[in-house]
Amino acid sequence: MEIIRTVDVERTYEDKGVPVHAVNGVNLIVEQGEFSVLAGASGSGKTTLLNVIGALDVPTRGEVFLHGEALSQKAGNELSAIRLTKIGFVFQAYNLIPVLSALENVSFPMVLQGVAASERRERAMAILDELDLAGLAHKRPGAMSGGQQQRVAVARAIVTNPALVLADEPTANLDSVTGHKLLDMMLRLNEEKKITFVFASHDEKVIARAKRLVTMRDGQIINDELRDGVFT
């Protein structure tokens, strides 16, 4: 099943009057169950494309379809609802809410969804348990290591059962062992729960595990290869 389809997507910034084509005509389809990596040198447009796909940013031209629906037709609060229910984000800088404990951070999207408190707690605890994070439940981000924070961030991203998890350089701030551990976890979620992941990363560890590798340069896709079977 198709989750994302971008059609001739462009995103142009004005930099002191000079247009910068951060994303310059991208056609990309993401199917359910993928574990894909957008690779490419720094500045090639990975983050910009990911933000456009995730409805955090609006393309200058072209169209993004999520489950066949054009995002350009959506009002601001509809886009919020889409981010809330269909998309999970994992950022380079973890971005947990500092005043909330791990359990509360993971519960937060469910608060926004209006899930009852008892069910929130149950589901958040179940996910933390599953990801071996139960011990961190009552710690705040400040009291956790980077790897722990990032795993809690993954838990937060998947707790609403989104159609798609977008991860922008999730390992960039982690040491190599921790990075591997995080990727193991994400791969397991992909294989066991069929959660769709799209990464933007130039980290070799991430690229090595990609089931599909999309390479970008100057805002365009220059290579798109399936590497299914690499890990089986």
Binding site: G54, A81, R83, F89, I97, L112
Partner: peptide
């Protein structure tokens, strides 16, 4: 501001 960006990315409505 960055944190508000995070809240928005989590799907928090502007009104909230």
């Amino acid at each position: 501001m960055h944190e508000f960006g995070v809240l928005m990315s989590l799907g928090m409505a502007r009104s909230r």
